[in-house]
Structures are given as C-alpha cells and as structure tokens.
C-alpha cells in the first residue's frame, strides 16, 4: 500500500445518524444478518450433512432394521414412520443450530455487531432465521427420499404443506432453547452434550418407533405429555390421515410457550456474554 494519499471521501453517503431513523430496525437488521448466515451455509455445505444424509440414514435404519418387526408390512410402517422421522430430524437439527451459534458467536465479528447501532437481538434472530434453510432442506430431503422408497401422502398437498410448516414452526421455537444453552455454554461440545441429553427423551420418548400400548405405564405417561408426540401426531394426521385438531392445538401452544420463555432468556444471555 504505497499510494495512500487521499483520505476516504467523507461526504458521499449518509452518516449513521440520518440512516438509523428508519423504522423496523429489528426486521431490517435481522434480514441482513440472515443473509450473512445463508452465505456462510452456501460456502460451507459440509455443515448440511445432518440435514441431508441423516434423514436418509434414519429412514433406512428404522424402516429396514425395525420395520418388519414392528408392523406387518414395511409400507404400512413407512406411512406412520416418515412424518415422525421428519419431526425427529428437525428437532435434532435445532440442536445443531445452537451448536453452530455457540461457535459463531465467539468470533470477533460478533463484537463488531455488538458495537454497532443495531437492534440488540438482531444477530441472534438473523442467525436463527438464516438457519431455517436447514429445516427446509431437511424436509425436502426427508419427503423426497420417503417418496423414493414408497411413502405416499394420503391426504392432499395443502395439508401436507401445512404439516411441513407446522413442523418448521415448532423447530424454530424449540431452537431458542438451544440458542440459550449455546449462549450459556463455553464450548460447542457442551451444547452438544446437553442438547442431545435433552433430545433423546424428547424424540425417542414418543410413538415414533412403536405403538405406545406396549410401553410400561410411566413411559406411556411421558410419551403422552411429551410435546414432540403431539407434533408427530399432527404431522401424521395432516399427511396420512387421522385426528389433527387436538394435537395441532397442543403443538401451537407448546411452540408459542417455548418461544415466549426462551427467546427473551436467550437474548438476555447473549447481551450478558462478555
């Protein structure tokens, strides 16, 4: 750099003061930061393994390993299994979002964000919004592979779409639990440990694998209380038929409740991190 003569032009663009008066700062800044998150995902596609290979692996594992033993025919089992696996994998993917964020936030660029006049929660909201692409990809892969091995939607496309959106909404809300853990934990490994410890009872403690009537009483009670069970039942109902209204309401209430509790806690933890 030998031609450093003139200082940067200091009059060409509006100063910070003029610009920031524009409304909807949180939305605007979150969208800009979600863009950052998407670009990062595009540049490091290996981060997407858990939402691309894992859904396929799970179908293969459950269907061919357990399918024969659980239900009479693999096709019948696949019809109930696939919507449940979709829920299970999105729940796992929401843990991964917390892990990624724990790693990301240690980088100096978050210090820059925090020293800028932007909405305080925008870096978190932006990252989580950007990670919604992971859920979309997961659902596409899950359904695509499901179709390839014989899964069929028995209701109508709109209901199926509603199922996908509801599952994504639940995962989005649940993500804030892991964002909070990500903000409190020092290491990504700790987030993973805590996250998966919580994940196993939540995902396997459902009727994803086997009908609940074969379970001991205490486990049945947990399965019934488990919000993930309600999400799975809703997804099943909307894709292959069955009761929808009850479990759907339960899903929405749980989602909103989790969001209302964990979003403020996560933001607070983020702002307190030094």
């Amino acid at each position: 750099m030998t031609t450093l003569t003139a200082p940067p032009e200091r009059t060409a663009v509006p100063s910070r003061r003029e610009g920031a008066a524009r409304p909807f700062a949180l939305v605007r800044h979150s969208v800009a930061l979600a863009g950052r998150s998407l670009t990062k995902t595009r540049r490091t596609p290996e981060q997407l393994i858990d939402v691309t290979l894992q859904p396929i692996l799970f179908v293969v594992m459950f269907l061919y390993l357990l399918g024969g033993a659980v239900a009479g025919s693999t096709h019948e089992y696949l019809q109930t299994l696939l919507p449940a696996l979709m829920v299970m994998n999105t729940v796992f993917a929401s843990v991964q979002t917390g892990i990624n964020l724990n790693d990301d936030i240690k980088k100096g660029v978050f210090d820059r964000f925090r020293s800028m006049p932007i909405a305080r929660s925008a870096p978190l909201v932006g990252s989580v919004l950007g990670d919604l692409i992971r859920f979309v990809l997961l659902i596409v892969v899950q359904l695509g592979f499901g179709y390839a091995v014989g899964f069929r939607i028995e209701t109508d496309p709109l209901s199926a779409l509603a199922a996908c959106l509801l599952v994504m909404f639940f995962a989005f809300c649940l993500t804030w639990v892991f964002v909070l853990i990500g903000m409190l934990a020092r290491e990504p490994g700790a987030v993973q440990g805590i996250g998966f410890m919580a994940m196993f009872p939540l995902t396997f403690g459902t009727n994803v694998l086997v009908p609940t009537d074969t379970l001991p009483g205490w486990l049945q009670a947990w399965v019934d209380a488990n919000p993930v069970t309600a999400v799975m039942e809703t997804a099943r109902g909307l894709m292959v038929g069955g009761a929808v209204a009850g479990p759907a309401l339960e899903t929405v209430l749980w989602s909103v409740g989790v969001l209302a509790v964990f979003f403020p806690l996560a933001v607070r933890a983020y702002l307190r991190r030094t």
């Binding site: 663009v13 610009g19 524009r22 800009a32 930061l33 863009g35 950052r36 820059r112 964000f113 800028m116």
Partner: peptide, 13 residues
C-alpha cells in the same frame, strides 16, 4: 456491504 446495510445504508450506497 453487510456492515453498510446494518448501518441502514441503501444497498447501492
């Protein structure tokens, strides 16, 4: 550009 956007500049600016 990201920083400019966060400072509420228009994309072109």
């Amino acid at each position: 550009v990201l920083i400019g956007r966060l400072l509420d500049m228009r994309t072109a600016a």
